[in-house]
Every structure is written in C-alpha cells, then in structure tokens.
C-alpha cells in the first residue's frame, strides 16, 4: 500500500464516529447529578406537605384526604425521579458494557455516544481511544476473527445499579411518607395547635426530615455508584493512553465489575498488540514486516495472541 492511500481496515469501518469533545470537563459529575436529583426531589416533596397543610386550614377536610393526596403525589414524584435517574445516569453504563462486548467480539464499527455526565463521557472517550488503537493494530497485524474473551460475551450484566437506584429512592419515599404521616397525625397537630401559625409546624418538620433523608440517601447512592464510577473513569483513561499498570478499584460489583472486566480484557489485548506492533513495524530492531508497506505479508502473525491474550488480567479487582 502506498503512502497516502486510503486505509481499508474492513468494509464496515466507513462512517465510524470518533469522539473529540473538548468541553468534557465542563460537565457535571454523576455525584453532582445524583445530589441535584435528590435535592430537587426533596424540594418537590416539600411543596406537597406545605400545600396540603395549607389546604387543611382552609377546607378542614378529613386528615386522611390530605394524607392520601400527599402519598399519591410523593409516589408520582418518586417514580419520575427513579425513571429519570435510571434512563439518564444508569442506562449509559449498560450501553457502554454492550459496546465493549462488541469491541471484544472484534466489531470495531460501533457507535459511541457521549452520555452527558463526566465519568461516563471519560469512559466513552477511553473506549474510543482503545477502539482506534485496536483498528491500528488490526491494520498492522491482520484481521481478528475471534473474540478477545469468549466467556465475557456470554455474561449477562447484573442490574445492580438499577436495583440500588430503585431501592434507594423507594426507601427514601417510604420513610418520607411515614414521617409525613406521623407529622400529620391528629396527636401532633393538636399538640402544636396552641402555637401561632400552627399549620406551618408539621410541614416544617416534614421538610427538615425530608432534607435529612435526601442527604443520607444521596450520599449512599453517590458512595455506591458515583465514587467507583469516578475511579473507574480515572483508570480507564490511564489505560487508554497506554498506562497499563493502572488498576481498577477493588470491590466493584454488578455492572461496574463487568465494565472493569471489559476494560481489563481490552488492556491485555492492547499490551499484546503493542508488542506485536513493535515487531511488525520493525521498531524493536528486528526485521521489518510492515503490512502497510507490503500487502503480501502474512497477516496471521500475531493474530492469535491478540485474539487470545495470554497476559493475566487483574481478575481479583
């Protein structure tokens, strides 16, 4: 192949998307978004008891009417937030897992979309770099027909993060509604009735307890999802620029563990590919064997080791 000719890696490669996003670090982190989500939810659920307390003073309807109304509204708000967090924050984790599986299967013509929050976008960018490098390796070392790690292909991703989000929001909702129920009980209301502006006291107590609960659950979700994802993004970023000694945080579970395994497989493939590239390009001092300059070269050289990486992964991570 002459210099300047179009590189033909495989016929499906045309139209691949390479991501260049200079504004990546201006984006919100997952922790930031989770925290904002809980604060917004707390604010919305605050409006409901305040409104119902105010209505109670005007219409004097039975307490259970307000209690029921509040429960329905809180439940709807919860559903809205669970749906929003899962679709915007958690789904990209599964999508990236699927993309990594495709790359491992040798399909480098995958579309990578930025997810909209910092950690996931960094993971996507790292994937894009590794994918591009694998394309270079493919060109230099020949076609890869098999998978990098067949076992990983058969794994079904756990829904650990979805479960965490669901349980966390649901627990928040149940506790919040229980507290609201207690604050609106006739005993509490009659206890505060001698005070001026007594109708405001139960809602204020609900607000305080709701905010406290939002903080507790927001911190839980951030620690269990946001922090490991942030650490994973750091490691994947290092691997994608060739720092192969970077290790993923220990104790990852569910889809985060799965994602880290995909990256470890790609890291191993890259390490082998680098070694093979040095030989194939004659950069290690050995005889030059460059397929880009000589189309008659045997593309089989080095392919097996790229397909079945022999370097042990950080399996314990």
């Amino acid at each position: 192949m002459a210099t300047g000719d179009v590189l033909r890696v495989d016929k499906h490669i045309i139209g691949i998307v390479t991501l260049v996003d200079d504004n990546l670090f201006g984006k919100k982190t997952l922790s930031n978004r989770l925290f904002r989500s809980y604060v917004l939810m707390a604010l919305l659920t605050i409006i409901i008891p305040v409104a119902s307390g105010y209505l109670y003073t005007i219409f004097q309807l039975p307490l259970y009417v307000y209690s029921l109304m509040m429960s329905i509204l809180v439940f709807l708000v919860l559903l809205l937030f669970i749906h929003s967090v899962i679709t915007k924050l958690v789904s990209p984790i599964y999508e990236l897992g699927g993309t990594l599986r495709k790359i491992q299967a040798g399909n480098l013509n995958v579309e990578l979309n930025l997810a909209g929050y910092q950690e996931m976008d960094r993971l996507v960018k790292a994937t894009d770099r590794l994918r591009n490098s694998l394309m270079i390796a493919k060109e230099y070392l020949g076609e890869r027909e098999s998978t990098l790690d067949k076992n990983l292909m058969d794994k079904i991703m756990d829904r650990d993060a979805t479960l965490k989000v669901f349980i966390s929001y649901l627990a928040y909702g149940i506790l919040f509604m229980s507290l609201s129920g207690i604050m609106y009980s006739s005993e509490i209301i009659s206890f505060f009735s001698p005070f001026p502006q007594a109708w405001l006291i139960p809602p204020l107590l609900v607000i305080l307890s709701g905010t406290f609960l939002a903080l507790v659950f927001g911190m839980y979700l951030t620690n269990s999802l946001g922090t490991p994802l942030h650490q994973m993004a750091d490691t994947a970023e290092k691997i994608s620029v060739g720092k192969y000694d970077a290790t993923f945080p220990r104790g990852l579970k569910g889809e985060l563990a799965e994602l880290s395994q995909h990256f470890i497989s790609l890291k191993n493939a890259m390490m082998v590919a680098e070694k093979e590239m040095l030989q194939a390009m004659g950069l290690d001092g050995s005889e030059e064997n460059d397929p880009l300059e000589n189309d008659s070269v045997d593309h089989g050289t080095g392919v097996e080791s790229l397909v079945e990486p022999k370097i042990e992964g950080d399996a314990s991570e």
Binding site: D128, N132, S133, I136, V241, G242, L292
Partner: peptide, 12 residues
Amino acid sequence: KAGPLGKFVLQK
C-alpha cells in the same frame, strides 16, 4: 486522540 498505538504509527 488515537489511543496508545498512535505512537507506533508516529515512530514508523
């Protein structure tokens, strides 16, 4: 921009 193997392309 191109990943870790980009450096080999440069060297080559």
